[in-house]
Design a protein around this nucleic acid. Structure first.
Lengths: 226, 226
DNA sequence: CGAAGTATTGACTACCTTCAAAAATTGTGG
DNA sequence: CCACAATTTTTGAAGGTAGTCAATACTTCG
C-alpha cells in the first residue's frame, strides 16, 4: 500500500514517489499557521514531515542568535528524517502549512522491507548532497548579486519555470529568511533586489512576488560577474 | 564477503564499516602523487574511491575560476558515489594517496542485495547531510577567526583528538585549500592563524602542523565571539 | 484610520579582499 | 650539503563590498 502523494527529502530534499507508510494510521495530517514551529533542534524525532501545502523553513542557530536557513521545503517535499533519534535543526512554517506526519518507526520499517524504496532514497540523498555542494559554492564564493540571482534561478528550476521567457512567481518567505538562507543581511538582500530591478532583469510587483523579465541574463548573473 | 577496511562517505562522508564489493576483483588499488587528479566533474562515474592512505580534496569551480573545496577525505573515507552516471565535482590528491577503486556496478549490486548495507548507507547519508548543514552555518554566518577555529576543531574531532588537553596534528592541505574550503582568501587564513597563535590558543611548529594549546578556548572561539 | 511590523534607502563603518613586498619553505643541480 | 630558484606563506597598506545603525516608506492588520 502506498500513500497518494509523492514523498521527498531527507532534511528536506530527498524525493521519493510514491511514498509508503500507511499499513496502520501511521500517518495523519496537521495544519500550522504562518510562524508556527513544527519542531526544534533536540526534540525527539518521532515523525517525518511531508509538506502537502505551503512552505516550511529549516534552520540552525548559533549561541549568539546568528541564524542559517538551511532550506525551504515546498509541497511534495519531506523534512525531519534524522540519522539518529533527534532533530538537528529547527523547522517552522513560512506560510500556512498543511503537513502529513509519518511515524518514524513505520517509515523506517518500510525502508527495511523494501530495498527498492531504500535505494531510491539513497540515490535521492546523493542528489541532495550534490545540491548542497552547489550551495557551498554559493555561500562561500558568490557575491551579493550572484547570491540573489542564484536564489531566484533555483526557485524557477524547482518549480519547472525554467523554460519560460518571462516568469512571475511568489516569494512566500520574507527578506529576513532570504538573508539567512544566503548568508547576508536583510539590507543587502533588499539593495540587491533593487539593483536587479533597476538593471531590468527582474520586476517586483510586490514584496512577495518576483517577475523575471530576462531569465537568461539572471542565469548568467548567478554564475559570473557581468 | 567483506573488504578489510572501513568504507565511508557519499561524496566523501558516508561511513560504512565493514565494506563490501569483492566477490570478483571488482576492487583494485591505485596510487596518486600529490597534486594528481582522481577525476573531474563530468567524467563517467565508473568507480567509487576509498581512501586507504593520504588525503584527497573534492571541489567545485565557477566559470571564472573561483573554487569551493567541498571536503577533505582522509583514510577510511569514500568519495565518488554519484546519484547518476557522472561525477559532480573534481577530486585531487592533497598528499601522496593510495585509494581502493570499487567498480560502481558491483558496488550498486551489493547495495541492492543487502538491505542492511543500504540502510546503513542511508543513515550515513543523513548524518552527512547534517554535517553539511553545520558547514552552511559556518560559510554563511561565521567570521574569519570562527572559521579557522571551527576548521581546526573539526579536524580534531574527526581524528578523535577531542579529549586531549594539548594536541599536535598535521595539516596536509596548503593555505589555498583551506581558504577555498572556508570561503576566504589565503591572506585571511594566514592572518587568522597568526592571530590565534598570538592569542596563545594554538602554536604553529611548521606551516603544515598545528599544536592546539587551549582546545577548550579554541572550541568556544569556533562558535562565539570572545 | 492608526499602530505595528516589514522593507527600502541612506550614511558610515568594519572586515575581508586586493595588491604588493618580504620572509620562509621547498625543490633542484652542482 | 650548499646555493639558488621557485613556490608558498606571511605581513603590510589600501580599497571595496557588505554590515551596522538610523530614518523613511510601505504593508498588514486590528
Amino acid at each position: 500500500m502506498y500513500v497518494t502523494s509523492p514523498i521527498k527529502t531527507i532534511e528536506s530534499q530527498i524525493t521519493l514517489s510514491p511514498g509508503h507508510c500507511d499499513e496502520f494510521p501511521s500517518t495523519h495530517e496537521v495544519t500550522f499557521r504562518e510562524g508556527d514551529n513544527l519542531f526544534y533542534t533536540g526534540d525527539e524525532a518521532d515523525y517525518v514531515y511531508e509538506v502537502v501545502e505551503g512552505v516550511v523553513r529549516s534552520s540552525k542557530v548559533l549561541a549568539d542568535g546568528r541564524r542559517q536557513v538551511l532550506n525551504f521545503c515546498y509541497a511534495g517535499e519531506m523534512i525531519g528524517l534524522s540519522h539518529d533519534s533527534y532533530y538537528h535543526c529547527d523547522c517552522d512554517a513560512v506560510s500556512k502549512v498543511r503537513v502529513r506526519l509519518h511515524r518514524k518507526n513505520a517509515f523506517m520499517k518500510d525502508i527495511e522491507n523494501d530495498p527498492e524504496f531504500c535505494l531510491k532514497l539513497l540515490r535521492k540523498a546523493a542528489a541532495e548532497v550534490n545540491n548542497m555542494q552547489d550551495h557551498f559554492l554559493m555561500l562561500g564564493r558568490k557575491n551579493a548579486v550572484e547570491k540573489i540571482s542564484s536564489f531566484l534561478v533555483a526557485i524557477m528550476d524547482r518549480q519547472n519555470l525554467a523554460k519560460l521567457n518571462s516568469v512571475i512567481f511568489d516569494l512566500p518567505m520574507n527578506r529576513s529568511d532570504i538573508a539567512d538562507f544566503l548568508g547576508m543581511t536583510i539590507e543587502t538582500v533588499s539593495r540587491n533586489f533593487t539593483k536587479l530591478r533597476k538593471m531590468g532583469v527582474i520586476d517586483l510587483p510586490s514584496t512577495h512576488q518576483v517577475r523575471v523579465v530576462e531569465p537568461a541574463r539572471l542565469r548568467s548573473l548567478a554564475e559570473n560577474k557581468t
